Each structure stands twice: as structure tokens, then as C-alpha cells.
Amino acid sequence: MKIETKGIFFLLLLITTCNYNVFPQDSRLMGKWVNNEDYSDINYIEFKNENIVLLFQGEKQSPPFVFITDFTKEPVWINMKVEENGIEAKILGLLHFINPDKIKIEFFYGEFEEQPTDFSLNKNSQSQLYIFNRLK
């Protein structure tokens, strides 16, 4: 029995689309991530759903940030925005999965013309680098 090329292409397209819809790229981020450093600005981060993230410093919780990711980039671009009392704050970031249960995130503060594309090695940069472990 001969299967047409168009039929195979359609089947592969359907499978790919279903996998993307069932397993969205951001699903790897969902949940709570803990930073075990003693003197850290952010103790843990919680990705609530595919576009809301909360940052915690001790028991203090940030307002909900809306975030977007670009998994086509390496490291992954993660950008966050929050508006409270008419004031808008934006944070540009980079994310790298060290393994499925450990991520490295660097948040860049200040006004940037372009998205940073590499993790900073400069201690004087306006950024914070964090290593988070998935809370199970």
C-alpha cells in the first residue's frame, strides 16, 4: 500500500501540533523554585501559569509579573513586566536549564535598548544572577 507524501506530511504536522498544545514550552518552568543562598534578593520564584510569575524575598511577595519567554533563543529570553499604582516596571532576563530541576536566571535592571543575549560576567553590571532548584 502506497502512502502519499502529502499524507505523511499532514500526519507529522498533526502530531507536532498536538504535542505543542499538550506540552507547551513554558510547562518546564511551572511551579516553585528555591534559591538557597543566604543573602539573596530573591529567595524563591513561582511560575503560577504560562504568563504569571511571583517573586519572593522572605515572606514578602511581589505583585504578579506578566512574563514572556522565547525558547528559540539560547539562553532563553525571559522578560517580565508589572504595573502597580500607575507605575510600570520591566525586567529583562536570561534563563538556562542546568538540568530539569535546576535553572540559572539573570535579571537585568535599568533601561536597555536591546535584550541582553549573554549571561554577565561583570560584577558591576546592573543585574542579579540566581540559581534556583525546583521545589518538589
Rank of each mutant, 00 (worst) to 15 (best):
E50I: 01
N85D: 08
I105R: 07
K104E: 15
W33E: 10
F132W: 12
K102W: 01
N19H: 12
Q115G: 02
L92T: 14
I131A: 06
E88Y: 01
L95S: 09
F97C: 07
D26H: 15
S120C: 01
T69P: 00
F56A: 06
E84T: 06
I8H: 09
Q128P: 02
E106M: 01
Q61K: 15
I42T: 14
E114I: 00
K102Y: 04
V34W: 13
S40Q: 06
F23A: 01
L11Y: 11
F67D: 13
C18Y: 05
P24Y: 15
N49V: 03
G58N: 01
I68Q: 09
D70L: 01
I87H: 13
F97G: 05
P116W: 04
K2G: 08
M80L: 15
N43T: 11
V76L: 02
F108Q: 01
E37Q: 09
I15T: 15
I131W: 11
D101C: 01
D118Q: 11
T72M: 06
I15E: 13
P64L: 03
F97T: 01
P116R: 03
Y20D: 08
N79E: 03
I68G: 02
K90C: 04
W77C: 03
F9D: 14
L13G: 03
E83T: 12
E74W: 00
R28T: 09
Q57T: 02
V34P: 04
P100N: 11
I42L: 13
D118P: 00
K102N: 08
K123L: 12
L14C: 13
N122C: 03
V34E: 14
E50Q: 10
E113V: 07
Q115R: 02
E106Y: 04
T69W: 05
D38R: 07
L129P: 05
D38K: 14
D26G: 10
N124P: 02
G93Q: 09
T5I: 10
G31S: 10
K104R: 15
V34F: 13
N85S: 07
H96P: 05
D101V: 00
I103S: 07
P100L: 10
F108I: 03
V34H: 12
Y39E: 11
F112A: 04
L14Y: 10
I52P: 04
K123P: 05
R28C: 10
S120H: 03
Y39S: 06
K32W: 06
K136W: 04
L29E: 00
I45C: 07
G7P: 06
F47N: 03
V22I: 15
